[in-house]
Deep mutational scan, measured.
Amino acid sequence: MTLTLTVPPGAKVRVRITNENGETTEIEVEPGETVTITLPAGSTVRVEVEVVDPDGRKRTETFTLKP
């Protein structure tokens, strides 16, 4: 399973991925970048995406991906 994120110009994104064992991976994606994350097959993962807009506003979306 893959997750692809494209960050709009001016925004910053931090992604936290937590697996079933509670292990967390965190990455930051710079403005204008596209990143593809390969998620472990057969695992349920929690993905938290934090977006910081150019004006400093933050918003966070959290979702769970199941196999």
Rank of each mutant, 00 (worst) to 15 (best):
M1N: 03
T2A: 07
T2Y: 11
T2H: 06
T2P: 03
L3S: 02
L3K: 02
L3C: 11
T4L: 10
T4R: 10
T4C: 14
L5C: 11
T6Q: 11
T6Y: 12
V7N: 02
P8V: 14
P8H: 13
P8D: 13
P8S: 11
P9C: 06
P9K: 09
G10K: 10
A11I: 01
K12R: 05
K12A: 11
V13P: 07
V13T: 11
R14Y: 10
R14P: 02
R14L: 09
V15D: 00
V15F: 05
R16S: 04
R16P: 00
I17A: 14
I17Q: 08
I17S: 11
I17M: 12
T18Q: 10
T18M: 07
N19G: 10
N19H: 05
N19K: 08
E20V: 04
E20S: 05
E20P: 05
N21Q: 10
N21R: 09
N21D: 11
N21T: 06
N21H: 08
N21K: 04
G22R: 07
G22Y: 09
G22A: 07
G22C: 14
E23K: 07
T24I: 06
T24Q: 09
T24K: 08
T25G: 06
T25V: 13
E26T: 05
E26R: 08
E28M: 03
E28N: 08
E28I: 02
E28R: 06
V29Q: 13
V29A: 04
V29M: 12
E30S: 05
E30D: 07
E30I: 14
P31G: 09
P31Y: 07
G32T: 13
G32Q: 13
E33S: 14
E33Q: 08
E33G: 12
E33H: 10
T34E: 07
T34F: 13
T34A: 11
V35F: 11
V35P: 08
V35Q: 03
V35R: 04
T36E: 14
I37A: 13
I37T: 11
T38L: 11
T38S: 06
T38N: 07
T38E: 06
L39E: 08
L39D: 06
L39W: 09
L39Q: 05
P40H: 13
P40L: 14
A41E: 06
A41G: 11
G42P: 09
S43M: 14
S43K: 14
S43V: 11
T44A: 08
T44D: 04
T44I: 10
T44H: 05
V45F: 12
V45L: 13
R46P: 01
R46T: 09
R46Y: 12
V47I: 06
V47W: 01
V47Y: 00
E48Q: 04
E48I: 04
E48D: 06
E48V: 05
V49E: 00
V49R: 01
E50C: 03
E50Q: 04
E50G: 00
E50L: 01
E50R: 01
E50Y: 01
V51N: 01
V51C: 04
V52A: 01
V52T: 14
V52K: 02
D53L: 14
P54F: 09
P54D: 03
D55C: 15
D55L: 02
G56H: 00
G56M: 00
G56N: 00
G56Q: 00
R57T: 11
K58I: 13
R59E: 01
R59I: 06
R59S: 03
T60E: 00
T60C: 13
E61S: 06
E61T: 15
E61P: 01
E61N: 02
T62Y: 14
T62P: 00
F63E: 15
F63M: 04
F63K: 11
F63S: 11
F63L: 08
F63G: 15
T64G: 00
T64L: 12
T64I: 15
T64Y: 15
T64S: 01
L65D: 01
L65C: 15
L65H: 01
L65Y: 14
K66M: 14
K66Q: 14
K66A: 14
K66T: 15
K66F: 15
P67I: 15
P67M: 15
P67F: 15
